[in-house]
Design a protein around this nucleic acid. Sequence first.
RNA 1: GGGCGAGUGGCGAAAUUGGUAAACGCACAACACUUAAAAUGUUGCCCUAUUUUUAGGUUGAGGGUUCAAGUCCCUCCUCGCCCACCA
Length: 823
Amino acid sequence: MEKYDPQKIELKWQEYWDKNRTYKNYNREKRFYVLDMFPYPSGEGLHVGHPKGYIATDVFARFKILQGYSVLHPMGFDSFGLPAENYAIKNKIHPKIAVEKNIATYQKQLKAFGFTYDWEREIITSDPEYYKWTQWIFLKMFEKGLAYESNEPVNWCPSCKTVLANEDLEKGSCERCGSRIVQKKLRQWVLKMTAYADRLLYDLDNENLNWEEMIKEQQRNWIGRSEGVQFEIKIKNSEEKIEVYTTRLDTVFGMTYAVVAPEHPILERIKDGIKNFSEIKRYLIQAQNKTELERMELQKEKTGVKLEGITAINPFTKEDIPLFVADYVLGFYGTGAVMAVPAHDERDFEFARKHNLPVKEVVKKPETKNEKNSGEKTDGAFTEDGILASSGEYSRLTSENARGKMAEWLEKNNLGRKKVNYKMRDWVFSRQRYWGEPIPIVHCEKCGTVAVPENELPLKLPEVKSYEPTGTGESPLANISEWVNTKCPKCGGSAKRETNTMPQWAGSCWYYLAYLMRGVSNLPAGQMNLQFPISSYKGEFDRWLPVDLYIGGIEHATRHLLYARFWHKFLYDLGVVSKKEPFKRLIHVGLVSGEDGRKMSKRWGNVVNPDDVISEFGADAMRLFEMFMGPFTQEVHWSTAGVNGSRRFLERVWKLQDKITNRKTEVARKKIEKLLHKTIKKVTEDIENFRFNTAISQLMILINEIEKEKELQTADCELLIIILSPFAPHIAEEMWFHLGHKESVFLQKWPRHDPALTKDEKINLAVQVNGKVRDIMAVDADISEDEAGKSAFAREKIKKWTAGKEIKQVIYIPGRIMNIVVG
RNA sequence: GGGCGAGUGGCGAAAUUGGUAAACGCACAACACUUAAAAUGUUGCCCUAUUUUUAGGUUGAGGGUUCAAGUCCCUCCUCGCCCACCA
């Protein structure tokens, strides 16, 4: 047998699979759609962490192919957006050229792994043939009133010189460059994601999504639904009133003041009645100049000013209460105004203490028998539910009951109503950058905002010399007058094009559909041609959706995964797709950090390039190692020595070929056959449950055992090759052909274990005395309790511990343990 | 502050879901092969005592339930991730 030489065999089989279209069996009855979160092609290339998820999907894809499914496993590139553009600016290359170059690098790196990707379906989000559809979906949203213009203050990154969505922030800073965000009023395009808030929440639990609970929870928190009551507080001696929102209406008798946010419109309306208006004005300017971050850093310090001369009335108690303006109340949430109950809200408590406002306790902790009732007021607010006190007719009710009754009273008197609020905001969808999809809208003086007609799509991104961001709040496109100045599609008069572009995330909202659309076109690889109308793709959508398995990083939990679900639901409403949810099963890939435990980055010099690993150890060894490192969803540290271990394992597998024989040596055969079937069972179950590490350790156990034998039956070797093949496809294929086969191992059937063979006839039964293992007996697996007891008591080691003692109890769990309890 | 998750050898980890803790691998050590090294093979490798055997201890700490706890319950400690003035 010649030496195991991955360099030689891996390239050979990659070419073979490609040429023979080994994985493209799209006409089988059962189908399975495996999807990776596609990368954005940065200039750095891949490091060894990136492929971990791709290896897992590849293992799964091969497993499903072997189980007889048509498996769709596509790959593409998310090439619009800031990473590509910033790279281009830094290196003074046009983004388009940079993207082409980086994609070539990525492809080369990915292909070295021998993945099952169907490159004929590759998509690139910055390709006009692709983004004409991104634009089309936007136009549909515009048509349905879900894309609208807004002038609300938005997050502005002074370094990236663009606005950002809430989802793009990290602790009040730009997620990409770390710069502090400032609030800026700019005309923006916004998508009405909040219109889908309820469905985005509800369907998480009601569409049989096999998602990790952690990700569902993150989305729930992000959507942030809360049920409460909105009611009005009148201003004394005035027609004016403010609406407040609360989830704790039960505490309303404890309201000792009310607060409006600095942005609240009432301040302008009642300014003549405010005696200290100049002071208020100063405060508003001060508040406006605070950045998001400052607002948060100073959160302990609650500032605010009383509106002198203004009195509000608590609708329940009819008491006069003061009104404040304070920036701890957020202008964009709820009504931008709150009732303040210092006794039962920590923020209000803090504010009240600072401004010497009364604290009125109206909810008491229910008394429990054993608890000492000290009667002392605790230092802080009591924020839990309890029993009402000093609340008029509502006293003695539980918080929950009181909330219901109080809301009824408000409704009856036409003062308020139940209201659901969400933390999630509408999606700020425009960017003042060059490298993105142009928003297909024309501004006409006469007709207003007008959609670019469908047959003019794609609205191509014009070529420019200078694509650097301007910082003026306008995109670089605004400087190209021949592009900007156009005719109104409606009236034919002169009009100007929208110059903002779409955000990073737009293209990835529907890409899993584009792969399916690519299946319809018969054009050669690399040529996208996705023709209108969308209905011509319905058959493909219905056949393949939803995506059966989706793997990617956890950082997308509240960004891409939320946006894509939103778009999918919109497309569902349009009748484009027939399923409510796009991704049926979702698993996140745990990060691979550097050998030093730090995040892999140029800065630490701990980046490992997969090309180097593959050329030293082979793609199979690398694949195997990344699946063996630890539980898939967990963070792991890279270890080059560990890859070497996987390589050693493959060398040993390779050497088994010297033992292959067809002679019958029954005893050895039996032993290996049993272990083989146990391994089939475990590997099958483990792949299904994404426990690749234990699947591989079981394969190692099997190999260790076979090594001890002199011979290996051909039939057993074949089964071994098949169950190893998803992890190490190249060596498996090579060994498969060595056995004389003329057809790929991936056209074989995944074996089923024989249940009779996975059962042991003899087992080692542990015998405990008082819970401590004192002996281990080799017995028949189906030994009866009587017999097991007899043999146990006959054994010296057991006698030693039971002699002269009263046997109180004997517990026997067949196949597991016997515990003798003595007194 | 809120939510989610995790703590097991020198390291990555496993444990049939309440039933022999440390499988499998990495690193390390000794030996064999070799002039030597690498590679490979064999053996050892949680802690303490001891004489190969054996006994005791051990899953972040403490308590509880149970014949039996890494696994279930309570209290506490540490770490990670996400969200964070959301009324």
